[in-house]
Amino acid sequence: MSKSTHDVSNEVVVRTIVRKRLTLRSLVREEKFLYVVSLVVFFTIWHLAATRGNGDSALVTPWATLQGLYDMMSSPLGGETLVGHTWNSLRRVLIGFSIAVCFGIPLGLLLGISETASAILRPLVDVFRPMPPLAWISLSILWFGIGEEPKIFIIFLASFIPSVLNAYNGVRLIEPELYDVVRVMGGSRWDEIKQVVVPASMPAISAGLQLSITSAWMGVLAAELVSSNSGLGYIIILGMQNSDPQMVLGGMVMIAAVAWVLTASMEKIDMMLCPWRREIKGL
C-alpha cells in the first residue's frame, strides 16, 4: 500500500512562537512592566506614609521592615531566630495538613463512590462544614492543653473539610461515559475506580489541596496568636506587646512570603498531578 498515514490523517504537529516587537505602546501594555510599576507605586506610598509625622508612627518604612527581618533572623527572640519560628509554624501546618489530606481525600472519594457511605457520612460532613475551624480554638485548648496538639488539631480541621468536599465533588462530576469505556472492555469495579474515579477527580482534588493549604496556614497563625510561645503568630503577638511595629511587620512579611511559597508549591504539585491539563497551553 503506497498511501502514507500523512495523507490519510491530514494532521501534522506544529509548534510556533509569536514574536512581538518592542514599542512604547506595547511596553505600556506589557504585563510585566505594569506589574513592576504597580509595586513601585505601592512601596513609595508605604514609605511616604511611614515617614510622615515625627517618626513615632506605628508604621515603619519598607526599608526598616527589611532591617527588622534581618535582625530577627540573626538574633533570637524567645529562644529562636525568625527562621526557627517560621519552621515551627510550617512544621505544624505540614503535619496537620498531611493528616487531613491522608484521611480527607479517601473519605471524599468514598462518599462519591458509595451511596451508602454517602448516606451515612454526608450528614456529619454537612453539620461540621459551616463551622469555621477557628471556632474550635478554645475547645481544642481545653481538650489538648497548650502544646503542639491543639494547633495541629485546628490545622487538621481547617484542611480536612476542603479535602473531603473537593474529592467528593470531583467524583460526582465525572461524565458517566468514561465509566462505559472501562465497562465494555470487561473492566471490574476496581478498574473503574483505579482508571476513572481517581484520575478524573484529580483536578478537583488538587484544587482542594490548594484550598486546604491556604486555610491550614491561616489556621496555624490564628492558633499561635491565641496561645503559643513559638511560631510566626507568636512573633506578631510579641511585637504587639512590645509596641514594636518593625517586628509585627516583619512577621507579616514572612507570613506572606511563606503563603506565597506554599501556593507556588501547590501549583507545581497540581501540574504533576494533572499533566494533561497543562499541555494544552503549548498548542
Binding site: 462505559d180 472492555m185 494533561w276
Partner: peptide, 20 residues
C-alpha cells in the same frame, strides 16, 4: 463483557482525558 471479548466504538468519541 467480562466473559466475551467485546469491543465497542461509541457514537460519541470517548477518550480518557488523562491518558495520551
Amino acid at each position: 463483557p467480562v466473559k466475551h471479548n467485546l469491543a465497542f466504538v461509541f457514537q460519541e468519541p470517548t477518550a480518557l482525558p488523562w491518558r495520551t
